[in-house]
Each structure stands twice: as C-alpha cells, then as structure tokens.
Write a protein that binds this DNA or RNA. Structure first.
Lengths: 152, 152
DNA sequence: TAGTTTTCCTACCTGATTGGTAGGGATAAT
DNA sequence: ATTATCCCTACCAATCAGGTAGGAAAACTA
C-alpha cells in the first residue's frame, strides 16, 4: 500500500495552488521550487490534473496554473485518482472484479472494507481542509494516539 | 494503494493452512492447486512466511507446511508485513520519516490517519475471522452499504 | 543404504512501472 | 518580434513484479 511520488507531488502542488491568491495563477516553476519537486516532472503531473479537470492553465507571459474548482470541492481522492487511477486495487484489479474460492471466500469483503475505509479518509478531506490545517474531526481523531505515529 | 499478488497469494495460502486439520501439514503443491497459485512462486512466499515465523515446515515424505501460531493470533497485517514490508508508505518511506513545508504541512497528519485506518482493518482481522466467515463487527459494518461494492 | 519425497536455496528472466530528463512546438502577452 | 509560459512526444535508467529452472539438503521408508 504505497502512495506514489506522483500522487504525493500532485497533492502538494494542488495545495500550493490552493494557498495562492484566489484568481491568480502560479507558474509550474514556482510550485516546483516551493515544494522541491523536479520541474519537468511536475509539468507532466499538472497536465494530468488539467486533463482531469482539477486545474486550469494559462499560457504565455503571465501564465501559470490555478485550481479549476473551489478548494472545498477537491478531495485528496480526486487528485490521486487523476494521477494514479483507482485508489485501491488487488493485483491490479479493483476489488469487485475479484473472486475467491474455498477458505479464501471472505477475503473479498475484507478488501472491500479496506477500500471503504481508505475512501472515507481520502474523499473526506479537501484541499481547503489541508490548507486551513483543520482536518475533519473523525480524521484528526485518528492521529491522537501516540501509537499512530510509531512504526510497528 | 495496491495489494500485491504476493500479499494476496500469501493470505490465501495462510487461509488454506488455517482451514486444514490442526496439527497436520499441507504440501505447497496442494495449496498451489487449491488456490490456483503458481507452485514455484508460492514456494518462495511460504519460505518468507517461515522466516517471518508465521508458518513452520517439515521436509521429506510426509512433509509440508502448517501455521506456527493459532489462527486467532495471526492477523492479515502480520502476513502482509512479512511478505511486502511496511503496510503503508509514501514514495517508499514510512510516514513518520516524511517532512513537508508550507501549505503542505498538514499532509503528514493525513497520511498518518490513513495508516491508522488501514492498520485498524488489517491488524483487526485474523485468519480465524476469515475462515469462520465472520468479520469483526466494525469491519463488516463497512461492507453494508451498496456503495461499498461500487466502483467510483 | 538406497530411493523417494518434500522443502530450501540460488540464480535467472521478461515486461511493466517508477521517477525522471530532453528538446522543441503552440500560444499568449508585450 | 520577442519573450515567457504551457504543452507534447520521446526517451531513459533503475527497480520491481511476477514468475521459472535446477538442484542441494533433509526426512522418512524400505
């Protein structure tokens, strides 16, 4: 269960746009510098996000990127799906397409439950939540225990 | 967020062992056949699980594999960690080792929350739960809604 | 002791994915 | 016309995923 560099970069770039003045545009180069992301690599990611309808772009001298929707209307799940495809997969296929037999039969509901859980977090948190630093209650509850921060 | 073939196979193999007569051993070949897993590939996985202390093996004529612990004491998280390493990582590193700056600062708590959530599911379900077909209440609750089974 | 059956170990392989880089074309403003 | 920016295509090296092959080591059986 790994979050790819692409997804991580995409979210950080989106946050950088979200934090900028509303209405204004930000150059890819600036985002790259602010978040220490390789510039050309980031360009590709921003392009994916544009095709996915998350950001809008402007070419030319005072060009750059801006979010295509209000920050509250873009969830982290939206971003990850746009750059990396389905949130959760097993052997590359999405849980509902799986089929198990014998003692493994109830493995399917387990993967489904896992996916629901991941969705709840990633769909439930918006760019607005992150830039404000206030995660939704049920999410920030999860980070309370010290064990949440410990490696096993 | 993908579950690898290795992890999927490992859990299914463990379930097959869990479903066998307690005390008896099962040959890799039988597990492979029952779950349609490539035999030699499975051998490697069972070996990982042996080194990880999850299964025990016996060579020779009536040899095979059996679980090294009671089925209630082996969680799905245990299995995945043994074959694939850390449950959740971002760009290959575990969340607590990350550091973000500027508007991305509260991204870290988000990944932490995500990891806690994944842990709750995968550490909270044992082989015993799966072979009995009864998932813990809080897990099976998640699979109730029809939307849980729908692709986005 | 010889033979059989199983696990165990090492090495290898192919294709896809990840995380980039390079160079230049299209477009918008000055 | 120039400049600044996005946009597009192609390429690349390293790693990983998923799997195969062959045989050595151990345990039992006759």
């Amino acid at each position: 269960m790994r979050i790819s560099a692409k997804a991580d970069y995409a979210v950080r770039a989106a946050l950088q746009l979200a934090a900028a003045e509303p209405g204004g545009t930000v150059k890819a180069e600036c985002v790259a510098e602010a978040q220490e992301i390789p510039h050309k690599f980031l360009e590709g990611i921003l392009n994916d996000m544009r095709r996915g309808g998350l950001v809008a772009s402007q070419r030319g001298v005072n060009g750059g990127y801006r979010l295509a929707k209000p920050t509250e209307d873009i969830s982290i799940a939206d971003i990850i799906r746009v750059v990396d495809g389905p949130l959760v997969s097993v052997r590359g296929v999405r849980p509902p397409e799986l089929s198990y037999s014998g003692p493994a039969e109830s493995l399917l509901p387990l993967w489904i439950a896992l996916r629901v859980n991941v969705r709840q977090i990633l769909e439930g948190v918006s760019l607005a939540d992150l830039v404000s630093g206030r995660l939704p209650g049920e999410v920030s509850l999860l980070t309370d225990s010290p064990s949440a921060w410990a490696n096993p």
